[in-house]
Amino acid sequence: MTQFLEGPQGRRIAYNRIEGQGPGVVFLGGFRSDMQGTKALWLEDWARARGRAFLRFDYSGHGESSGMFEEGAIGDWFADAMAAIRGLTEGRQVLVGSSMGGWIGLLLARTMPERLAGLVTVAAAPDFTERGYWAGFSAAERAALLERGRVEQPSDYGDAPYVITRRLIEDGRDHLVLDQPLPLPFPVRFLQGTEDADVPMSWALDLLAHGKGEDMRLVLVKGADHRFSTPDCLALIGDALDEVLARAG
Rank of each mutant, 00 (worst) to 15 (best):
M1P: 07
T2A: 10
L5G: 01
E6H: 14
G10L: 02
R11Q: 13
N16T: 13
R17N: 05
I18E: 11
E19V: 03
E19R: 15
G20H: 03
V26T: 04
G30L: 04
G30N: 09
G30H: 01
F31A: 10
D34Q: 12
D34H: 14
G37V: 05
R50M: 00
F54R: 02
F54C: 06
Y59F: 10
S60D: 04
H62T: 07
G63H: 03
S65Q: 03
S65C: 04
S65D: 01
S65K: 01
S66Y: 02
M68T: 10
M68L: 13
F69A: 02
E71T: 11
G72F: 04
A73Q: 05
I74K: 01
D76W: 00
A79E: 02
A79Q: 00
M82L: 14
A84P: 02
A84D: 02
A84S: 06
E90H: 12
G91D: 03
G91Y: 02
R92S: 04
Q93R: 09
Q93C: 03
L95G: 01
L95H: 00
S98E: 06
S98I: 03
S99N: 07
M100I: 06
I104D: 01
L106F: 03
L107F: 01
L107W: 02
R110D: 08
E114R: 09
R115W: 02
A123M: 08
A123T: 06
A124G: 07
A124F: 01
R131M: 10
S138D: 10
E141R: 14
R142T: 09
R142W: 05
A144S: 13
A144Y: 06
G149I: 09
G149Q: 14
S155K: 13
S155L: 11
S155R: 14
P161V: 09
Y162F: 15
T165D: 14
L168N: 09
D171S: 08
R173G: 14
D174M: 11
L176C: 11
L178H: 05
D179K: 13
D179H: 15
L184F: 05
L184C: 11
F186S: 06
F186I: 08
P187N: 08
V188Q: 07
L191G: 02
L191W: 01
Q192A: 08
G193P: 04
D196F: 00
D196T: 03
P200Q: 05
P200Y: 00
S202R: 14
W203V: 09
A204L: 11
A204I: 07
D206P: 06
H210V: 08
G213I: 08
G213C: 11
E214P: 04
E214G: 10
E214K: 15
E214Q: 14
D215A: 12
D215V: 09
M216C: 12
R217Y: 11
V219E: 15
G223T: 07
G223W: 09
D225N: 14
R227S: 12
F228Y: 13
F228R: 06
T230Y: 15
L234H: 13
L234R: 12
A235L: 13
G238C: 08
G238F: 05
D242L: 06
V244I: 14
L245Y: 00
L245G: 02
